[in-house]
Amino acid sequence: MVLAGSRSELVLWAEPVVRSAMSSQREPLKPDPTLAEAGVRAAQGDREAFEIIHRRLSPGLRRLLSKRTSDQSLIEELVQRTWSGVWEAFSHGRYDPARAAVSTFVYAVASHVWLRHLRSVKKLDAASPDELSTGGMVEGPHDEASLSEALEVVRRAMDGRLSDLTEQERWVIRLAAEGATDRTIAERLKISPSTANQCKQSAMSKLARVLARLGFRPEPAERGSMERE
């Protein structure tokens, strides 16, 4: 269903209809601080802010880990380890809110926790390089701060806030990252496979340049950070 109209028209009659259409509308809740605000406070050691981050991100963290393992007790243990790592990083000043969103940082800690888990169960030794090919792409010290900074750059590039990736390049590389082949991408975007490949290469070059400007070089340094068990 497509509804056309200008925003100004919509705004004019928005309020009365909101009240009738949403009959149980309550007084606006006093919102929690945004994650960004909580991240800044938590980085300064504010425990209450940390609890807000913990409360708001834990469900998503469980969902992410459940994509990698179905063992619920393991998921709970990894979630606990992640939060323990996050708190430790906050306490030791290893999180800089100016460099990465707190969600990105928590994700980076979780990916390291997952990597350590994989190591502990000897998955990495058993797997061939091609079997475990995800994660830990940053050169140099593979700490959470560096990984989160690299991920933040990519996040910004992918939602158009950074780099000159075109819309088509963002689509192509997003699909490619999900494992789609050039042919599949071409079918889904109704372009030729060669165009899909060109877009992918162009997008990757641009991303590599952006990462390089920040001192990151995507080399095969670590493996398996968020790969499924």
Binding site: L64, T104, T134, G135, M137, E152, A177, M226
Partner: peptide, 11 residues
């Protein structure tokens, strides 16, 4: 780079 994109998407 594709791994980074996928991880960024999950973040």
């Amino acid at each position: 780079i594709l791994d980074l994109v996928q991880m960024a998407s999950e973040a």
